[in-house]
Design a protein around this nucleic acid. Structure first.
Length: 762
DNA sequence: AAAGCGGTACTTTTT
DNA sequence: GTACCGCTTT
């Protein structure tokens, strides 16, 4: 075998060779972090350590897959395959299935994604007759998620004085009750949400010393990537598993911590030193990825953060070009500018499509960019957003699979009982749900013999229910003796889904049909793929397929088309973490968009945004372009934007303004041009022209987001689009605070204070 | 019970 | 601007 260690610089080598004990690797952006991790694992294997004894935890599925591939190249595929490598969620889901009975779950439990969880919460909120505006399912889920990630169970949540006081003050006193019911229902449905996978792993390791001992011995060497993004729940799992051997290596960069909003805790990195007093620290500070200009620009930005571990990221690479900034009048012009720049850079064959990435803060920004790229015939691929497996038609078909494997799964049952329509409506379902809850049984049981649960239904409905039950049972009989492809195809036809989408030729139906076809072809690929470790004749069944995709929230089914490879990448800055591209465009560098308006209230949140900017900048290898638009459609409204404060934080010697001048007084002449275009999407501008208030110079000055507390009834305020008006009522608090305003020219409007910028006039 | 209409809320980031 | 919800009509 070749001495691959020679590929590494000194600190990298040291980090790889320090095999025993606790090791903390602080790895600056582009410093070869993945390389250290992969080489370290390869090194362990070369020392003769059994791959089954190595646990490597990553943050995304993509990272796990890439690392596995790279290790396979170094030490061969069979060893790489036997490694325990994956995301926290996928690794511990596997372990939980194996140990399920210890925590009183069946081993075929269903994993609910955020969408499933929200559906269940919505149902609960409705059943409890709570106002779904106060108890917004998404917000409730994030509160519950937060509790779980800090290992606060539902009973503990309800007993905690501080939490209860907080909820009461934010006018959501029933959150604890919802949390309790939610957990009961998940349990009854034999389902776990994403956070339960980690929470229940903690319970398993806490309450079963023998299990803990077993895995401590199994995982003699533990590696954790992106340690700065672990939450408390993950931290504790790792700590427990490592407690016996203390062969643990964590790799991270506090400057790239961008998931605090989801419970990640930078403290975990800082705690490492006290948790393992005998630890060794290695700092990787040489950047191999980017030009001097990019590295220095990023350093000048991150220097504005107060909370950080000191390190100096530097590079030996060429100076390169300055970062280029351009200004556009609208998001479509911004997109067109980016597109034409890509076009130019491709012309002299220095770059091809795959070398470009366009990164943005929010998913909805992708639309304008897509349009521009399509117009220029530039092939692109969007990562993230509404992923393939989140699409309605796909989730519908998957719900059939899930219900067949786990008939207790309430959310899947409700999703498909009447899709395609089979004459079982809400009245019937409400009765079934009530009976199920009263008798503490699943809807599936009630549906099989409604009379036994005192549910009165007419004979027509009973027949239709019965047909549905028989259909699912007939599917069930075929789930284990057919491969996933044969099974899935059969379900797609017999459930009526294919027929449903064949019935009309609307573009929407056609797309959905194509997606179903794509899922079936993914099933085919899956069924024909060689089985894992077992015998070659082992049938690749639907349950294995479901397990494989239930934690894939980010990807499309694998495609092998050659033209799929050379494309411009579009994704959020979050999704770009860990990736690199020769040319990077950061679009939408505007206040309130980036940094997000949600993060302007606190320093810690603003610093997280700044770290995100740091991550985004350091994705670039050769060239980085920043752009912003002076106007943007948001929430169906036309908004004026200011350039992001982050632009000003880049030391000016590293940045170059291409078009326009960000400090020059606002030039609104482009507005007039837009009027004459009279394009549909610019209609709101015409409205502005008729509103006397908005045509004045600097019309975007002074409009700010206000809270309910700052407003009074009868106050006169100005809105960018609706002009001057008087406040009539103010209701709600916090997120949902609304004001009803009577405008002189537009009548009465309900404004959500979260979004509507106002200027107080008197 | 299903389909079609109109009103409302919504957009931070993801396993 | 869209997705979803609830209401109305058939």
């Amino acid at each position: 075998m070749t001495d691959f260690l020679a590929d590494l610089n000194e600190p990298q080598q040291k980090a790889v060779k320090a095999v025993d004990g606790a090791v903390l690797v602080i790895a600056g952006a582009g410093s070869g972090k993945t390389r250290v991790l992969t080489y370290r694992i390869a090194h362990l294997l070369n020392l003769g350590i059994d791959p089954f004894n190595i646990l490597a935890l990553t943050f995304t599925n993509k990272a796990a897959k890439e690392m596995k591939d790279r290790i396979a190249q170094l030490v061969g595929g069979s060893k790489a395959k036997s490694l325990w490598m994956g995301t926290f969620h996928s690794v511990f889901a596997k372990i939980l299935r194996f140990e399920a009975e210890k925590i009183e779950y069946p081993s075929n439990f269903t994993i609910y994604d955020a969408d499933d969880s929200k559906r269940l919460l919505k149902n609960i909120i409705k059943e409890q007759n709570l106002d779904d505006k106060i108890y917004n399912a998404g917000a409730v889920l994030s509160r519950i998620s937060n509790a779980k990630n800090n290992l606060i169970s539902a009973p503990e949540y309800n007993e905690d004085f501080e939490i209860q006081t907080y909820d009461a003050q934010s006018r959501k006193p029933k959150l604890g009750m919802i949390y309790s019911i939610y957990q009961q229902r998940l349990k009854k449905a034999a389902a776990m949400d994403f956070d339960d996978l980690l929470f229940n792993t903690n319970i398993l390791l806490r309450d079963h010393a023998d299990v803990l001992y077993k895995y401590q011995n199994k995982f003699k060497y533990i590696l954790v990537d992106e340690y700065q993004d672990t939450n408390f729940s993950q931290y504790l799992i790792v700590k427990k598993l490592a407690a016996n051997n203390e062969n643990i290596c964590v790799v991270g960069d506090d400057a790239q911590s961008i998931y605090a909003f989801r419970g990640a805790n930078i403290q975990n990195i800082l705690n490492f030193k006290s948790d393992y007093p005998e630890h060794k620290i290695f700092k990787l500070e040489q950047n191999y990825r980017s030009t001097k200009n990019i590295v220095n620009a990023a350093n000048s930005v991150i220097a504005n953060n107060k909370d950080q571990i000191k390190k100096v990221v530097w590079t030996d690479n060429e100076s390169g070009e300055k970062i280029q900034l351009f200004k556009a009048s609208s998001e479509s012009e911004e997109a067109a500018l980016i597109g034409s720049r890509i076009f130019e850079l491709k012309k002299n064959n220095e770059f091809s499509d795959k070398d470009f990435a366009i990164l943005y803060r929010t998913n909805y920004q992708s639309r304008a960019l897509e349009e521009a790229l399509r117009k220029l015939n530039i092939p692109y691929k969007i990562y993230g957003g509404v992923s393939f497996y989140q699409r309605k038609e796909i989730k519908d078909l998957l719900a059939y699979f899930r219900l067949v494997l786990n008939p207790s799964d309430e959310t899947s049952f409700l999703r498909i009982i009447n899709f395609p329509a089979r004459g079982i409506g809400n009245t019937t379902l409400d009765r079934l749900v009530v009976a199920a809850n009263e008798n503490n049984s699943s809807i599936w049981e009630v549906a099989q013999k409604p009379a036994a649960f005192n549910v009165q239904l007419n004979s027509g409905i009973i027949n239709r229910l019965n047909e549905f039950v028989l259909m699912i049972k007939s599917f069930k009989a075929r789930a284990n003796n057919h491969n996933a492809f044969e099974f899935g195809k059969m379900v797609a036809y017999q459930s009526g889904i294919i027929k449903f989408y064949n019935e009309d030729e609307s573009p929407e139906s056609v797309t959905r049909r194509e997606n179903i076809e794509e899922l079936i072809s993914a099933l085919k690929d899956f069924s024909e793929a060689p089985g894992d470790v077992e015998g070659e004749n082992a049938l690749r069944t639907i349950d294995v397929f479901l397990e494989e995709i239930s934690l894939l929230t980010d990807s499309e089914p694998e495609k092998t088309d050659r033209d799929d490879v050379n494309r411009v990448s579009l994704m959020t800055m979050h999704a770009a973490k860990g990736l690199e591209f020769p040319v990077v465009f950061l679009a939408g560098m505007e206040e309130n968009l980036f940094p997000s308006h949600m993060s302007l209230q606190s320093r810690t949140e603003l610093e997280e945004e700044r770290r995100l900017f740091y991550v985004a900048l350091t994705r670039g290898m050769k060239k980085v372009f920043l752009s912003y638009a002076e106007t943007r459609f948001r929430f169906g409204e036309f908004n004026f934007c200011e350039h992001s404060r982050f632009i000003d934080e880049i030391d000016e010697q590293f940045i170059n303004v291409i078009s326009g001048n960000i400090n020059k007084p606002k030039d609104n002449s482009w507005l007039k041009e837009s009027f004459s275009e009279s394009r549909k999407q610019f209609k709101p501008i015409n409205k502005i022209s008729s509103a006397p208030s908005a045509t004045q110079e600097d019309s975007d000055a002074g409009f700010v987001l206000l809270t309910a507390a700052q407003l009074r009834i009868d106050m006169v305020v100005q809105h960018q689009r609706f002009g001057i008006g008087k406040i009539k009522t103010i209701e709600g608090a916090g997120e949902n605070a609304k004001a009803s305003v009577v405008f002189n020219n537009f009548g009465q409007k309900q404004l959500l204070l979260k979004y509507a910028k106002l200027k107080i006039l008197s």
